[in-house]
């Protein structure tokens, strides 16, 4: 496997975590209840820390240092899926995104935990345990709210329907897909997607939420190649504001 293929994989994982971590942090101070305010803030901290682990791996492969990589790129240089850059919306949308994304990342890191590249496997093994809490948190709230009253149920169903095309975009195959699978790094995006469909279906059924026929949904691809919605550039600018004003700022 070429180093280029490995970097491509690491960048998309890292960028997903950094951008969703930043989005999660937007709930700090405005969560619908104190516990959820804290939960989304904690998950934000987890995800930004997790992205750092991947930017460190990239740095060891010769990429620039993590701060430079995180804070000096423009939107079109990010490899995150469009799903994670969408605005937080109402709480129901953020919860559905958190549910759909973390189920996918849990499977991703479970697979990468067996990766022959030891440094990557070590990070994946570590993250698996942390993301499990994110998944459990999402499952609990999805089930609780979707079975609470009609309004909550309908809001979640609507957010789910809106989110699914973007969620499928997380599994956008890379141009190195075959190379990575052949090298035994992990079984590939398609394999994650199949397992993900099974896992989320179990929880959604318990919650009384409906999944449409998958064939009717067109995945939103492009994020992995730097094609983004208009929402990413403002986020990147806000995230990097302090760094751009004073690159040596410390606190």
């Amino acid at each position: 496997m070429t180093e280029e293929a490995l970097k491509d994989l690491l960048y998309k994982i890292a960028d997903d975590l950094l951008i969703l971590g930043h989005r999660n942090s937007e709930w700090t101070g405005v969560g619908p209840l104190l516990e959820e305010d804290i939960a989304f803030s904690s998950m934000a901290q987890d995800k930004v820390g997790q992205s750092l682990a991947f930017y460190n791996l990239l740095h060891e492969l010769g990429e620039q240092d993590p701060d430079t990589v995180a804070f000096t790129r423009n939107a079109d240089q990010f490899h995150n899926s469009q799903f994670v850059e969408l605005p937080i919306g109402e709480y129901d949308f953020s919860l559905i995104r958190h549910f759909l994304f973390d189920h996918a990342d849990y499977i991703r890191f479970s697979m990468l935990a067996d990766c022959p590249i030891e440094e990557l496997a070590q990070v994946a093994r570590k993250l698996k345990g942390e993301i499990k809490y994110h998944v459990m948190h999402a499952n609990t709230w999805i089930k609780q709210l979707a079975t609470a009253n009609e309004e909550a149920h309908d809001r979640l169903q609507k957010s789910l329907d809106e989110a699914l095309p973007y969620a499928l975009g997380v599994f956008e195959p890379s141009k190195f897909e075959k190379e990575i699978i052949d090298a035994g790094v992990y079984p590939g995006e398609k394999a994650i997607e199949e397992q993900w469909k099974e896992n989320i279906a179990i929880v959604l059924e318990q919650a009384g939420l409906k999944l449409p026929d998958w064939n009717t949904i067109k995945p939103v691809y492009g994020g992995r190649d730097g094609k983004h919605t208009e929402h990413l550039q403002p986020l990147v600018e806000e995230m990097s504001e302090v760094f751009r004003v004073d690159p040596s700022a410390d606190w």
Binding site: E35, E36, I38, A39, S41, S42, M43, Y133, M136, H137
Partner: peptide, 13 residues
């Protein structure tokens, strides 16, 4: 259990 996330990453409420 009130929340699996607390004041630091390693604590629950």
């Amino acid at each position: 259990l009130k929340s699996p996330f607390g004041p630091t990453l390693c604590r629950s409420l």
